[in-house]
Nucleic acid binder design. Structure first.
Length: 474
RNA sequence: GCCCCCAUCGUCUAGUGGUCUAGGACACCUCCCUUUCACGGAGGUAACAGGGAUUCGAAUUCCCUUGGGGGUACCA
């Protein structure tokens, strides 16, 4: 039997990292088994679903490299199908019409709460006579459809991650609503109809769905449909150990992207949140993970999201990139920062910059601050740099450099430093520090000689030496 | 309240009764490289929640306690 899995996001928000991780596990599972991966949009919540969220989810999955074989399928386009199944369940006696008003249900819950009982529907409309129904209808009440849940029933399944799971029907909250009065199907019902119709073989989702699975199994049975295998993954937790939610700051894939995280790093990190590769090799690309992935190696405990590790992985992928690749990734960030970069014209020069700052990058965004020194003619001088320029020999050192032409190659730069050292009779460190202060405005940063060459090609060396000279003391 | 799940270094984890004086990775600390900051390299600190039981033997099995989490909708 061909493996078929799906990711079923609800377009009520941007692509969340938890959803993305579930998508990743499903994708890996499908690819590992040579199966199919389906994208299905669960947009039955008309009030909260929005097209821009759907767009965000789709582009996010694409960016991550989690391509799907079928879809996107939209639940709202399958309404007639849900209606059909509801009619069937009604006819077979698995479901019935329930006429309570919101207020009545709230009162029921309040009463139960007052008695310290678990809130649940008391199934009071399960056996309405046709006269009673007619009476409610005469009052203008519109019924929701409820699916019968037998209190005595015990639901058992073998979870691929958690082992044997058991639920009592009585703990499921009474007969559940599967469709609103206007015919809109509800999640637990629509999911099953879809998964059955799409012949889903494995349902891999977060453990927050555990109770839903018990309810859904009952619907599979009523439908006489084959049961898929279930696998409930651990949740991604925030630093407090709670389920990561939008309130925890950055959680959507598009935000990570804007912050300068690259897709291979994000995907690699997400995989490590709950799954561990057999050989212990942690740095893996999507294709490398495919043959290694299995649900057996997915952990049961939730995992806290750790920025340090994500940063390390991201920097790893950034450090691996060629200068040309880096430029391609960096340009959008540079342009957004307002730097006048023109890839066509400046490519070789931009690659020099990228090669120089590459090892210092943790995120692409870091490239904005790190490249600033090379992008504008003037720099500001920090306290340390100013102090260095006010050293006794600094003025003479700068005059020497101003008297020569800018170096074109490293060897020339080295030779110039040597010459200035000897002429001024100072140590190399002094020359280097002074030159760095003058050129960069700070005493820390990438390789000085390389920086010098890069600035020279832009014609920024002389103006900066002049500016620095004015800060020196005779 | 009720139901369910989970529990190894600060964090992510390896570990499926003996090879565990518990391994790796991130972070942290030290050292090396070096004109600085990074990068890179070499070391180091650091964990089986507690209590019972089973067993010749338990991080690994069972029970209880504790702690944490999830769910409990006419959301998904």
């Amino acid at each position: 039997m061909t493996v078929r899995v799906r990711i079923a996001p609800s377009p009520t928000g941007n692509l969340h990292i938890g959803t993305a991780r579930t998508a990743l596990f499903n994708w890996l599972f499908a690819r590992h088994h040579g199966g199919e991966f389906i994208l299905r949009m669960e947009d039955t919540d008309r009030e909260r679903s929005r097209p821009e969220f759907a767009e965000n989810i789709i582009s996010g999955l694409k960016w991550l490299g989690l391509d799907w074989d079928i879809g996107p399928i939209w639940q709202t386009q399958r309404l007639h199908r849900y209606q059909e199944v509801i009619a069937q369940l009604l006819a077979q006696g698995f479901a019935y019409r329930s006429y309570e008003t919101e207020e009545e249900l709230e009162a029921m819950r309040a009463a139960q709460e007052a008695q310290k009982l678990a809130p649940r529907y008391n199934n009071q409309h399960r056996h309405l006579t046709s006269e009673q129904e007619a009476a409610f209808q005469a009052q203008g009440r519109k019924p929701v459809i409820r699916f019968k849940i037998d209190d005595e029933r015990e639901i058992v399944w073998h979870d691929l991650i958690r082992g044997e799971m058991r639920w009592r029907g009585a703990d499921l909250g009474g007969d559940m609503v599967i469709a609103r009065a206007d015919g809109q199907p509800l999640y637990n019902f629509a999911v099953v109809v879809d998964d059955v119709d799409m012949q889903i073989t494995h349902v891999i989702r977060g453990e927050d769905h555990l109770a839903n699975t018990a309810k859904q199994i009952l619907i599979y049975e009523a439908l006489g449909a084959p049961m898929p295998a279930f696998a409930h993954t651990p949740l991604i937790l925030n630093s407090e150990g709670r389920k990561l939610s939008k309130r925890d700051g950055v959680t959507s894939i598009s935000e990570f992207r804007q912050m300068g995280y690259v897709a291979p790093a994000l995907v690699n990190y997400m995989a490590l949140l709950g799954w561990s590769p057999p050989e212990g090799k942690e740095l893996l690309t999507l294709p490398e993970m495919v043959p290694l992935f299995s649900l057996e190696r997915v952990n049961k405990a939730g995992s806290k999201f750790d920025w340090d590790k994500l940063n390390w992985i991201n920097s790893h992928y950034l450090h691996q990139m060629s200068p040309a690749q880096l430029v391609a990734e960096l340009v959008p960030f540079w342009q957004e920062a307002g730097y006048a970069v023109e890839p066509e014209r400046d490519q070789p020069w931009l690659e020099q910059v990228a090669a120089l700052i590459g090892p210092s990058l943790v995120t692409l965004k870091d490239g904005v601050a790190l490249a600033r020194f090379y992008m504008t003619e003037q720099v500001s001088y920090d306290d340390e740099a100013t102090a260095q320029l006010q050293q006794p020999q600094s003025q003479e050192i700068l005059r020497q450099f101003l008297a020569t032409s800018d170096p074109q190659r490293v060897e020339e730069a080295q030779a110039l430093v040597q010459t200035v050292m000897q002429t001024c009779g100072v140590k190399k460190v002094q020359v280097m520090k002074t030159l760095r202060a003058a050129l960069m405005g700070t005493l820390q940063g990438p390789d000085l000689l390389q920086s010098w060459l890069i600035l020279a090609r832009r014609g920024f060396v002389q103006p900066r030496l002049q500016a620095a000279l004015s800060l020196t003391q005779a």
